[in-house]
Design a protein around this nucleic acid. Sequence first.
DNA 1: TATGAATGAGGCTTCATTCAT
DNA 2: TATGAATGAAGCCTCATTCAT
Lengths: 197, 197, 197, 197
Amino acid sequence: MTSPASGRPLRADALRNRAKVLAAAEEVFAVQGTSASTEEVARKAGVGIGTVFRHFPTKESLLEAVLVALLERLAAEARGLRSADDPGAAFFGFFGRVVAQAAAKQAVTEALAEAGVDARQATGRAGPDLKAALGVLLGRAQEAGAVRADVGAGEVMALLAGMSYAAGRAGAREDVLRIAFDGLRPREAPDRPGAPG
Amino acid sequence: MTSPASGRPLRADALRNRAKVLAAAEEVFAVQGTSASTEEVARKAGVGIGTVFRHFPTKESLLEAVLVALLERLAAEARGLRSADDPGAAFFGFFGRVVAQAAAKQAVTEALAEAGVDARQATGRAGPDLKAALGVLLGRAQEAGAVRADVGAGEVMALLAGMSYAAGRAGAREDVLRIAFDGLRPREAPDRPGAPG
Amino acid sequence: MTSPASGRPLRADALRNRAKVLAAAEEVFAVQGTSASTEEVARKAGVGIGTVFRHFPTKESLLEAVLVALLERLAAEARGLRSADDPGAAFFGFFGRVVAQAAAKQAVTEALAEAGVDARQATGRAGPDLKAALGVLLGRAQEAGAVRADVGAGEVMALLAGMSYAAGRAGAREDVLRIAFDGLRPREAPDRPGAPG
Amino acid sequence: MTSPASGRPLRADALRNRAKVLAAAEEVFAVQGTSASTEEVARKAGVGIGTVFRHFPTKESLLEAVLVALLERLAAEARGLRSADDPGAAFFGFFGRVVAQAAAKQAVTEALAEAGVDARQATGRAGPDLKAALGVLLGRAQEAGAVRADVGAGEVMALLAGMSYAAGRAGAREDVLRIAFDGLRPREAPDRPGAPG
DNA sequence: TATGAATGAGGCTTCATTCAT
DNA sequence: TATGAATGAAGCCTCATTCAT
């Protein structure tokens, strides 16, 4: 997602501008919600409004780019945990960090929801990419017995979106996450200290 | 919520119009989101734009009224289940129906979120009312051993909002609810180290 | 100006309502300017908006009625001074009181201006009536040598409107009136008792 | 007053548009009063409504700009007469021309009134500037014995506003001005071409 | 006749998008 | 390519006026 739809690679300065705009948009939308004006984004980025529209021909496309960037970052983080020592901790840790981020940036929640809506469309490859990376974490956690076997990546994505929403709007956080985590754990309490023989 | 803020009760025809507007708003906001125009609401209600503003002097006040109406309806339903035979079924059934509604009406989710944000403010008494009614269902379900004892109404509200969001946006539904419900049920092995972090 | 244009005399209660509306309009327009809403007038009068429009079919007609009432009152006061002992004092005193009133009620200035615009039209008989009454005061003051002989009632009306405006908007009052009064006095008789007040 | 509040000077074409809008506003407000619509101003200026709001973010700010422009023009004219040969003629001539202008442009009267209301606030520096320039003309005319010594610039401003109002609304003009001028002249030197012999 | 609810034109303002500089 | 001025559709809201109760 670093070149324009047209194909041709951007000049270095144009690329830099694109990045500035994207960063500004991320922050502005995070703070003011997605109804913030494009002008505001331009101001924050220190470029003219025309430059914003040159890189993102539509406000919607700008919004999409922000969501894609967020999803890509999450996917990258998930991929980095692919071979963590403790698969359960990796999975739950990742889940928790995403929700914490979402509490601060509404756009994260939207990105997750968007990605969940069938995991294609607007966000292009980013949704499926995240889902795949999350699927790997999930699989390993399931193999390790830390997560019940009968849930799939799709459900976890949805749960993630829901918890992110709850974290951002409704005042809860840890308490609600605890419920979701317990719901994700194996019912039988497989091999965990403290369970019956 | 059937008389205007000003005082004196409305004439029968005015009351009818108020209801028409409210119903139209509910539907319009459900379908198009809360950014739908007031004009659209008026059109759907079959009244002039002036009539909408006579009853709800601000778009915000109209939105609030819609949310309050939704919350009141949910609270009423919850209160109706106060003495249901099977407290567990009552609680989980209610939870599930709310989420199902939310899948169709985005406004329900917003109402829940709004209500959760400390349960006062914009939605007035409606938020706390729902929380209280839900608390009763929860308490009985807990007494009956159908729900774990260490969760409160606030967390359930937040979970409800999150699940509603997930249901409406991310494509899931029953599968995700299953996880949440399992998380709410008492563990077979009550005390167990390892909470989310 | 106590019966409707239609002819038929009003019932006692209707007449009372008309008066209430007129009084309310006078006060509301005085305080908020002529852009105050008709609804506000109805509220102040304690009647329904429909009643206001029954008596004054147009906002403009209501405004006119207010102006006419003011002019009639001024004309009546002027007529009451017709045979005052000191014609000069009567003339200047009247002038000063009108200006003082105008400082508080913007509508007075508008009434005078309206009346001056040819002294007919909108305000009907009221403009000419005031002009005539003022003319009498002026004539006697001129005969008594208190006012220069080469000014007519029309010019005095215009001067009155101008001073009223100045008094209401620009911060002046007595100082400016003094200039106008000196301008009205005969050149030949420099010092003379009776200053503005 | 040729650059926007924001800072940086406007591009040539933008400056031209700003001027067009201002001129149009001046004319529209002159003819229809200050309640004329912004849309009308845009139409008259031959620009889109958005352009008007880009230069003047509020209707009030547009109105203010018009008043300021008028006051500045008057102040400039007054300053140009600072060293006129005949101070009396300069003073009275200026006074008369202002009133004549006001007869055509209602906005002039409002500008003067606004400026008189303490000579600050809305019109910023423009009010005091005019008052100062007028004060110079007045002072020289007083030194030359053409104007009585016991009036100040404030009173003259107020008188100017009043006469402007009278000229625009009440039908008078020269006759009324004559009264005001006589009121301004020194009492002691009734008929006077050029001063004492 | 009185009431006040209903109406809708019209006003102000915002903002995504286009285009001349 | 970058800039930011210009555009105008569209949104919210007010208010004079009409009309059913």
